[in-house]
């Protein structure tokens, strides 16, 4: 993977198509007009019928990881509005969410929910509560699957450690390393400002125009749309930023310098 951009280097292409990925939603933080929205994945199945199987400990872990990775990207003490959707949250869980937020200098202020029990717990804990009907909550569901534009890019600053998977219905920009055993699945491009050693899948919904970029490309596996490739057995002696993209012959990797200019 060390040939310059004029002669893109072939990487070993694995012929069979990977299973079409389902994207269960993850915990998502989104800045919006002086507030930060904390969106929890819904408890009910996704529109495509796949269940969201996030249990409370997993959800908590994801929240902590997203907070640790995002801290730099929003102002401290910005009010947080929790979009709990149809998740059942009890008082203890709301407290744990508030604790996690306050560790990142963020303050839970308002709770939106379609569940009566959650609304009662939130009110008892002293938060402002908006109880939406399930129907409205459903309409407001971010990223309903049908033919939508991509979500805004997700910026993270962290080391993605083994066992962590980031899924995002848009482009992912990560400042840090993607370690072996971790993965990024994005419907848009994937840009790794660091070492890429895990598994990444760009254009996961099928867009073969998507790109994967890394300062140091040593992936376990690369996927773009339904193309799969893995890195050569022997790592190159020297690394420089590279771009992976799809050609009719499969995934190719080229030196990043001048890539955009020389392409097509």
């Amino acid at each position: 993977m060390t040939v310059d951009s004029s002669v893109p280097s072939p990487v070993e292409t694995i012929p069979e198509t990977p299973p079409q990925p389902v994207l269960p939603l993850q915990v998502h933080l989104k800045g919006e007009e002086g507030r930060l929205l904390l969106l929890l994945p819904p408890e009910t199945p996704n529109l495509d019928g796949s269940p969201t199987s996030l249990t409370w400990p997993d959800l908590w872990l994801q929240l902590k990881q997203r907070l640790n990775a995002g801290e730099r990207f929003w102002q401290t003490n910005i009010p947080v509005h929790l979009m709990a959707q149809d998740r059942l949250l009890d008082g203890r869980q709301l407290q744990e969410i508030a604790d996690a937020l306050s560790e990142s200098q963020l303050k839970l202020e308002r709770v939106y929910t379609s569940r009566r029990q959650t609304a009662v717990a939130a009110a008892a804990a002293g938060y402002s509560v908006d109880q939406l009907s399930a129907a409205i909550a459903f309409l407001n569901k971010p990223n309903s699957q049908t033919g939508q534009a991509l979500a805004e890019p997700l910026y993270l600053q962290t080391t993605l450690r083994s066992g962590v998977e980031v899924r995002h219905p848009g482009t992912v920009v990560l400042l840090g390393d993607v370690n072996p055993g971790s993965s990024v699945v994005a419907d848009g491009d994937i840009i790794i400002w660091g070492r890429l050693r895990g598994l990444v899948h760009a254009g996961a919904k099928g867009n073969a125009q998507c790109l994967i970029m890394a300062l140091q490309m040593e992936p376990t596996q690369l996927r773009i749309a339904d193309n799969v490739a893995r890195a050569p057995e022997k790592p190159p002696a020297e690394f420089y930023p590279e771009v992976a993209y799809v050609t009719p012959q499969g995934i190719r990797i080229a030196r990043a310098t001048g890539f955009v200019r020389t392409r097509d």
Partner: peptide, 11 residues
């Protein structure tokens, strides 16, 4: 590596 990630999450 995995354990470090969990420890970090647990502050």
């Amino acid at each position: 590596d995995r354990v470090i990630g969990l420890l970090e999450a647990h502050s």
